[in-house]
């Protein structure tokens, strides 16, 4: 029995590594000199990362990605938590309709909003700004839907007790609901952050100024910049791709369980 387990473990390890081998190999290449990459051998260097940051401003793109994803997460999560609490705990005229409109955003393909959002942000002069990147991304009902389901599962008696003590609804939300729902809120925060971090089409549409590029735009431009396939500086491109992947990868390894719970609960409820 123990031997069988060890075999299974080895097989799983091998299968997992094989599956991830494209990504792992690309990370390895990002630490290689161009010369050793094209001629064989392994000559470790940080030169590709230094060039990605020095020549191509990937530090700036990284900062932009952190700012944009951070703001979307912070604002989106706050608004979603408040709305979720109201949907879960209050019976008010129009509430069901608004909840349905919130849930429906999950099924509405986002491409239909691309052109109008571009036009309206252009009209108010918000293209090429952080606000232009952040604001449309808040219009997402997933977190509110998910948190509403979660809050419904919290016993109402806890709210009542707080009301007895003279708390107002916003205080009940902040002192009773938020502490209990913290794991779910955290999961949703990660979910929003990762989704926004990897967002490509909207920044591509909304931003033309290079100092506002996010990592995704910077990486795609760097790759497309190279004329013809033979001329691509692969180790440099792989270093840029590693910079793009690594923060989420590190976060993922820390909090995999929260993330998986968030995703599966959203799907099954």
């Amino acid at each position: 029995m123990a031997r069988e387990n060890r075999w299974l473990a080895a097989l799983a390890l091998l299968g997992g590594l094989l599956f991830l081998s494209p990504a792992l190999y690309s990370i390895a290449v990002s630490f290689q000199t161009a010369q050793s990459y094209y001629q064989g051998g392994f000559d470790p260097t940080l030169d590709n990362f230094i060039r990605a940051i020095g020549q191509y401003d990937f530090a700036r793109y990284l900062l932009n990605s952190v700012i944009v994803s951070g703001l979307v997460t912070l604002i989106g999560l706050s608004l979603a938590t408040m709305a979720a609490y109201a949907f879960a705990r209050f019976d008010f005229p129009g509430g069901n309709l608004m909840f349905a409109a919130t849930v429906a955003t999950l099924m509405i393909p986002s491409h239909i909003t691309l052109i109008p959002n571009y036009l309206s942000l252009a009209r108010v002069g918000l293209l090429d700004s952080y606000a232009g990147l952040v604001l449309p991304a808040i219009s997402n009902g997933f977190a509110a839907f998910f948190l509403r389901q979660y809050i419904k599962g919290i016993p109402r008696a806890l709210d009542e007790a707080a009301y007895m003590d003279g708390a107002r609804p916003i205080q009940v939300l902040w002192r009773v609901i938020v502490p209990i729902a913290r794991p779910a809120i955290l999961s949703m925060g990660l979910f929003i952050f990762i989704g926004e971090w990897n967002n490509y089409i909207w920044p591509l549409v909304a931003v033309g100024r290079e100092d506002l590029y996010t990592l995704q735009i910077g990486l795609a431009r760097l790759y497309k910049l190279n004329p013809g396939e033979g001329a691509v500086d692969w180790p440099l491109v792989m270093a840029a791709s590693t910079i793009t992947i690594l923060p989420v990868l590190a976060g993922f390894l820390l909090i995999e369980r929260h993330l998986v719970r968030g995703i599966t609960m959203g799907a099954l409820k």
Binding site: L79, A86, F90, A101, T102, I115, S120, P136, I138, P169
Partner: peptide, 24 residues
């Protein structure tokens, strides 16, 4: 109270999802 809590999110959803559908 519930309207004040729901309104900010609904505002974003209206402005960046539903009005754009009509605009399209």
């Amino acid at each position: 109270t519930p309207y004040l809590m729901v309104l900010p999110l609904m505002g974003f959803i209206a402005a960046f999802t539903y009005i754009p559908i009509a605009a399209s």
